[in-house]
């Protein structure tokens, strides 16, 4: 697995990001001084146990949530400090989303769902590009179907097509295979890999599945709101090993804390 682009620029970057929820006694710090860069044209997975802050990191990177401190940039645009209108426009124009479920609007056909971001923007999607994605995802004969008439895997493939339709700067995928059977999940992951290899798409994926993480070029591990590991060219086994090791590390740290 090689990357298409020899010169790596940064697509998304977080610099000293802090994020806390609640206040006083009940305050939970979700991100503590996180700094990370995601290379353009690369497929990066963010892993970590529940409550590690991996989803929060993604939400902050994607302009769905605001940061308390630090800056987030997407391409040459600074995300931090933008108002709702600007954030909305940024998401529409520069970001593609794939969620675990509820990716599609029920009243729209598969094709209408794919071109939804363009429709919202009031522009027309590039027909050749759309054709190419549809072909790659093998959705040509499903275009006029409503989401309820599609299988879970097909629905998620439509979501992938939608995410790529506007050629966004970056695609954020939040547990894209979480709701799928193994075979459908593999199809989706193969497509994501392919879109990075063939189209130079930047993808940041949150997952807790080592098998899914193995499709990525790089895995970033998060625990207690901090980046604890950064691994290149992962395989399922290396990820599992790292996770085991990493759980021991966390447990040790906790023991130390309790002892102190």
């Amino acid at each position: 697995m090689s990357t298409a682009s020899p010169v790596k620029t940064t697509a998304v970057a977080a610099q000293g990001v802090w994020k806390a929820y609640g206040s006083g006694e009940a305050q939970v710090v979700a991100l503590r001084d996180v700094s990370v860069e995601f290379a353009s044209g690369a497929f990066t997975a963010i892993m970590g146990p529940s409550g590690s802050g991996k989803s929060t990191l993604m939400h902050c990177l994607a302009g769905l949530d605001t940061t308390d401190r630090g800056t987030v940039t997407i391409g040459d645009a600074t995300v931090s400090g933008l108002g709702d209108k600007a954030l909305t426009k940024l998401r529409r124009d520069k970001i593609g989303f794939i969620f675990q479920q509820f990716n599609l609007l029920p009243p729209l056909t598969a094709e209408e769902n794919i071109t939804l971001p363009a429709a919202i923007a009031g522009t027309k999607a590039d027909p050749d590009w759309i054709k190419q994605i549809i072909h790659t995802l093998d959705l040509a004969d499903r275009l006029s179907h409503k989401p309820t008439e599609l299988s879970g895997g097909q629905q998620q493939r439509v979501a992938c097509a939608r995410a790529l339709a506007t050629r966004p700067e970056v695609v954020f995928a939040d547990e894209p295979t979480g709701n799928l059977d193994t075979r459908s999940g593999a199809e989706v992951l193969r497509f994501l890999r392919k879109s990075v290899d063939d189209f130079g798409q930047t993808i940041v994926m949150v997952t807790h599945d080592p098998g899914a993480a193995a499709y990525a070029d790089r895995v970033v591990f998060l625990a207690d709101g901090q980046i604890v590991e950064d691994m290149n060219d992962p395989t399922a086994d290396s990820v599992i090993d790292k996770m085991k090791h990493f759980e021991e590390l966390v447990a040790a740290a906790r023991d130390q804390e309790e002892a102190a």
Binding site: T88, R91, R92, F99, L105, L116, P117, I120, A121
Partner: peptide, 8 residues
Amino acid sequence: LLRAIGMT
């Protein structure tokens, strides 16, 4: 979803 993918 609509708001996430860019509906104002």
